[in-house]
Amino acid sequence: MSFSQQLPIVFEALNVGFLQTLKLFFVTLLGALPLGLLISFGSMSKFKPLSGLIKTVVWIVRGSPLMIQLLIIYYFPGLVFQNNIWGSGENGRFLAAAVSFIINYACYFSEIYRGGIQGVPKGQQEAGQVLGLKKNQIFFKITLLQMIKQIVPPMSNEIITLVKDTSLARIIALQEVIWAGEAFMKGSNGISGQIWPLFFTAVYYLAFNGILTLLFGKLEKKLSYFK
């Protein structure tokens, strides 16, 4: 098969794979951004058993490889409890991958949030209190934006890492873009022994991360009006 005949087949397969990559990315963000905030509140809780428990969980999740977490979350229920809770097929794999990524990234995000919240001077909260604002009003009207400004740089770092980390999900056979690229090495759709599709997947990551970098740059600039 000539190169020009391979091109459309390879691109179609890579596009399908990258759609999975994007799906995992956005679902992870959607879950991990709010969950991370809850975890950060929990880790700052004055109720010691709760904050202790959460700190231990965060330590375990941040201290062990995401690849192992994927294997454990996907295979453990079936292996140990004889009950595969994920069902069969692609959807189960996606769900398990999404849960692993959300938990993992929520823990990373929680630490960034904690830094952000604690980075807002206590006086801000007190100023809100003496003006008679309630706790949630203080958080949303005063603390939140200051926190966001502080966490944008570390967050953008972490989110760009997330884009690339999605490729780890192929350990549980989630067919993301690198899986799709690798398939042409072993042979798929009549094309075999081709290495270039695998390398070409990097272009997808670069393009998408380029867009993200631009967006984060814009956000940072937008928040630069105050200190």
């Binding site: 294997l71 996907y74 295979y75 453990f76 229920p77 079936g78 292996l79 004889q82 009950n83 595969n84 994920w86 069969s88 189960g92 350990i171 549980i172 056979a173």
Partner: peptide, 11 residues
């Protein structure tokens, strides 16, 4: 992972 897939009842 074929053995894990079997034992974990994924397949």
């Amino acid at each position: 992972n074929k053995v894990m897939e079997l034992d974990g009842k994924q397949i």
